[in-house]
Structure formats: structure tokens, C-alpha cells
């Protein structure tokens, strides 16, 4: 069989959307850690964002089916937890897409740098948690719109 090179496979996986935030890919999110051929088996290492994130199982299923669509059926998923996932692994492309979608990207200062809608820096936290484990709820005090902030870990 023809074994596509791993660069090609990274490209394919870059079109697999995150199930909860479909504007970014699982590669943008930084959860695909490694792709390698082990003999005739393609091994993909995936790391969970949060330990109990319910999207993890869906993500694994999406990877397997995306690879199958490209004719790769002999695949193995490895769940890797070390080193633990960090928002530092979010790609620049991913950060831009998050902002365009209305989600403030993670910021080491501990909160969003600006409102993703009106770019005002006058923002306040509503809740440390949000609609998914990776987000918190914030509000802009200028345009008054609430928005999601991608927590920094």
C-alpha cells in the first residue's frame, strides 16, 4: 500500500474541526501531538484538553473517520497526557479564528486582552466557567455584550 507522508496527514487532520468550537481545527487546538507510521499502522497521539472533556471521545472518532475517508483504515490512537496540554499550543491561525468567531483567545495575564467584538479593553469577568470546560464567561462594559474567553492553562 502507499503510505502518505506525515505532512500530508497533518494537513488532513487540520481540516477536522473541534466538535465544540468548529471554527478551529484539532491541529489548531494543539491536541494532535504526533503522527507516525509504525510499520503499516498509522499512530496518532492525541492529548485531552481537560481531563473530563466530553468532546475527547468525539474527537477521537472524528480523527479515525477523517483518516478512513483518505483510505487510511489501519490506524491506532494513542491518548497521551504528558506533558499536559497547555493553551500555549494553540496555533496563531487558531487564535485569529477564535477572535473572529467571538471567543477571546487565552492570555497569560489571566483574562482577555480585549472584547472580541468591539476591541474595547474594558472587560469584566462574569464567571470562571463557561459553556465548555475550556472557556470562561466575560462581558464588555462598553458594548455590553457577553463573550466567551478561552481559559489559559
Amino acid at each position: 500500500m502507499v503510505k502518505p507522508d506525515t505532512d500530508q496527514i497533518w494537513d488532513w487532520l487540520d481540516s477536522v474541526p473541534d466538535p465544540e468550537i468548529p471554527v478551529i481545527s484539532i491541529v489548531d487546538l494543539g491536541i494532535v501531538r504526533d503522527i507516525s507510521w509504525q510499520g503499516d499502522t498509522l499512530e496518532v497521539s492525541v492529548t485531552p484538553t481537560y481531563s473530563g472533556c466530553p468532546a475527547t471521545a468525539v474527537i477521537e472518532l472524528s480523527i479515525t473517520s477523517a483518516l478512513a475517508q483518505h483510505g487510511l483504515t489501519n490506524t491506532r490512537l494513542k491518548r497521551q497526557i504528558a506533558p499536559p496540554w497547555t493553551t500555549d499550543w494553540l496555533s496563531d491561525k487558531g487564535r485569529t479564528k477564535l477572535t473572529e468567531y467571538g471567543i477571546a483567545p487565552p492570555n497569560p495575564a489571566g483574562g482577555p486582552s480585549e472584547c472580541p467584538r468591539c476591541q474595547s479593553q474594558n472587560v469584566e469577568r462574569i464567571s470562571q466557567f463557561g459553556s465548555t470546560p475550556c472557556k470562561a464567561q466575560w462581558r464588555c462594559t462598553d458594548c455590553l455584550e457577553p463573550f466567551d474567553y478561552f481559559k489559559c492553562i
Binding site: 481537560y50 473530563g52 472533556c53 497526557i81 464567571s127 470562571q128 466557567f129 470546560p133 464567561q137
Partner: peptide, 20 residues
């Protein structure tokens, strides 16, 4: 609502740890 979500998220993290 915010606390409901926060408690559920904390529960999820802990159940994720339990799974490991």
C-alpha cells in the same frame, strides 16, 4: 446559571481524574 455551569465543569474534571 453560572454556578450551575461551574459546578458541573468541576464535576467533569474530577470524573476525568477518576477515570485516569
Amino acid at each position: 446559571l453560572e454556578e450551575d455551569i461551574a459546578l458541573a465543569n468541576t464535576a467533569l474534571d474530577l470524573i476525568g481524574h477518576a477515570q485516569m
